[in-house]
Computed example of a mutant assay.
Amino acid sequence: MTQSDRRPPAWFGIVAVVLVIWGAVGVFACVQQLRLGAEAMGPADAYYRRLYATLPFWYNPVYAVATFSGLAAALALALRSRFAGPLFAVSLVAIVIQFGWLFAATDLIAVRGAAQVVPFPVFIAAVAAFGLWLSRHARRQGWIG
């Protein structure tokens, strides 16, 4: 019996499927932003249009890396692949770069307020960190290769 032959508990499969759905929603949001720009989440006001227009050239590709690697990580976890951990790590780093730049280099927090703009990005990073932890835990338990 190899290490990855150990069957994970039922909750592991449920959590992996939830992470796949979360990743698919993230990829959809990214594709919408790439297609629609500032209007991706509905009618944008002048501030959000201006903010989106001033994003650096690398911002959207980093967003794509964050979401696509997150979905790939979740799929790898569901398939019990050893690539889940490294892919979650890539996603988490891209998330930190994306939102770190947005909060440090723009006036978003000053204009909209931290209570309005910070919680969801923190939640996104927490989900990626959880996925990274879970993939490492699963590997130690022998649930993934």
Score class of each variant (00 low, 15 high):
118 V>G: 00
15 V>T: 14
61 P>M: 09
62 V>G: 06
64 A>W: 02
16 A>M: 05
102 L>N: 07
85 G>Y: 08
90 V>M: 09
59 Y>Q: 13
3 Q>T: 12
6 R>Q: 12
51 L>G: 01
87 L>S: 07
63 Y>F: 15
21 I>P: 05
135 S>Q: 03
33 Q>A: 15
58 W>A: 14
136 R>C: 11
88 F>E: 00
103 F>Y: 14
16 A>K: 03
78 A>F: 10
128 A>G: 02
45 D>I: 11
46 A>I: 12
70 G>Y: 00
123 F>C: 05
5 D>E: 14
128 A>K: 02
126 A>G: 14
56 P>I: 11
119 P>I: 08
7 R>W: 07
98 Q>S: 10
28 F>L: 10
2 T>Y: 09
126 A>T: 11
109 I>S: 03
16 A>G: 06
104 A>C: 07
101 W>F: 12
16 A>F: 08
106 T>V: 09
16 A>R: 05
34 L>Q: 10
45 D>A: 09
106 T>C: 11
13 G>T: 07
66 A>N: 03
38 A>N: 04
142 G>Q: 07
101 W>N: 04
57 F>H: 12
44 A>P: 09
8 P>W: 01
55 L>A: 11
136 R>V: 10
138 A>T: 00
142 G>M: 04
32 Q>T: 14
78 A>T: 02
41 M>H: 13
74 A>F: 06
84 A>N: 00
89 A>Q: 04
83 F>K: 12
50 R>N: 13
59 Y>V: 02
